[in-house]
């Protein structure tokens, strides 16, 4: 084998190694393992009161939320820094304090709706997610909140970027040898 041919062969082998690692990371990034499920409910939520729960999440976490609420109930999914959570512990949460909490600068509303919410949330950084159902009407609606925490083996964004970069590098490295092989077969 000529030196140039050998060089392209070595490059191709390194390219295949890069592709193998890229594939491994990609496979890992799509694997999601359920860790824990919590369920809270109230048959009658009095006017002005709030039913809530929270989970601390990280970049590899997927939080699946399923909420059913009766007429007059408003559903909030809020993300805030972990330090903020203490505010909710020390003050009794009702519709007024919830609105004041949500109005703060570093508190982010991820979803706000009424009656029903079924959604999975992914995160880029560590945060606390508060799921709250506030009775802003005058009736007594029933409320059910189910939260399922799932852990992704690799954070989705980082995993896909890494995998894509490595996959492209591998392809570029392997391409000259593949072209040579195809050309050699064509000439036979």
């Amino acid at each position: 084998m000529m030196p140039a041919g050998r060089l392209t062969y070595v490059m191709a082998r390194f390219g295949l190694l890069a592709m193998a690692i890229s594939l491994a990371v990609l496979c890992a990034s799509v694997i999601v393992l359920p860790t824990e499920t919590t369920h809270i409910s109230a048959s009658e939520l009095p006017p002005g009161e709030v039913l809530w729960d929270y989970r601390c999440v990280g970049p590899n976490t997927v939080l699946e939320v399923k909420i059913w609420a009766g007429k007059g109930a408003h559903i909030y999914v809020i993300a805030c820094p972990e330090e903020k959570l203490a505010q909710l512990w020390y003050s009794e949460l009702n519709t007024t304090t919830l609105k004041a909490f949500v109005a703060q600068e570093d508190v982010k509303i991820l979803a706000r709706t009424t009656r029903r919410l079924v959604r999975a949330f992914c995160f880029d950084e560590r945060a606390c997610v508060i799921v709250a159902v506030a009775n802003e009407g005058s009736g007594f609606p029933s409320v059910s909140i189910t939260m399922t925490m799932k852990v992704r083996l690799v954070p989705l964004g980082r995993g896909r970027t890494f995998s894509l970069a490595l996959g492209i590098t591998g392809t570029v490295l392997a391409l000259p040898y593949a072209t040579m092989r195809i050309a050699r077969r064509g000439s036979r």
Partner: peptide
């Protein structure tokens, strides 16, 4: 020989990632 190093690279990269939930728990 092909594809032993490639399979090894895949396994060496993939296998430790299984322990990532434990690594996050150590934070």
């Amino acid at each position: 020989r092909f594809p032993i190093p490639e399979i090894l690279a895949f396994l060496y990269a993939f296998f430790p990632l299984i322990f990532s939930p434990v690594a996050y728990a150590a934070m």
